[in-house]
């Protein structure tokens, strides 16, 4: 009897849009976006390419501060980045043309994949940072 709420909770987690008023996109959408836009450079295992594309595993850039991560996707990254003493040189173009919901979905996906166990990113969080960046410019 005690196990039912846990199962429900897990279901809620997996299909979070239905539990949180559609604000946190589900992992299937995130995985699809990852395959379409990210995988060729960041690789199927999120491991990146030595000297070229930074890994998405074992780095605070992905699992840490959401604002920094959302900003990288919205603005792109045009400078070399150092992760675990390794320099990565290839630039990443802005993905600002994706919708806030798509950005939230793909970021949620990478924060919970490849062994990462971090929190979700919501559409609202992306919208808020997009607005902040727009006001700055």
């Amino acid at each position: 009897m005690r196990e039912i709420p846990v199962t429900l909770l897990l279901l809620c987690f997996s299909f979070s849009p239905y539990c949180q008023g559609n604000t946190t996109p589900n992992s299937i959408e995130g995985a699809k976006l990852y395959h379409q836009y990210c995988m060729s450079c960041h690789q199927a295992d999120g491991g990146g390419v030595p000297q070229m594309t930074p890994p998405l595993v074992s780095t605070n850039y992905v699992t840490g501060d959401k604002k920094r991560l959302i900003t990288i996707l919205l603005n792109g990254l045009n400078e070399p980045i150092v992760i675990n003493d390794e320099v990565y040189y290839n630039p990443m173009a802005s993905f600002g043309y994706l919708t806030d919901r798509q950005i939230a979905a793909v970021l949620t996906y990478i924060r919970k994949s490849f062994g990462n166990q971090s929190t979700s990113v919501s559409t609202q969080e992306v919208s808020k940072i997009r607005k902040q960046l727009a006001n700055k410019n």
């Binding site: 792109g76 290839n90 630039p91 990443m92 173009a93 802005s94 043309y97």
Partner: peptide, 8 residues
């Protein structure tokens, strides 16, 4: 115009 950006 923008390196490695789709549509640029």
């Amino acid at each position: 115009v923008e390196d490695r950006k789709a549509g640029s």
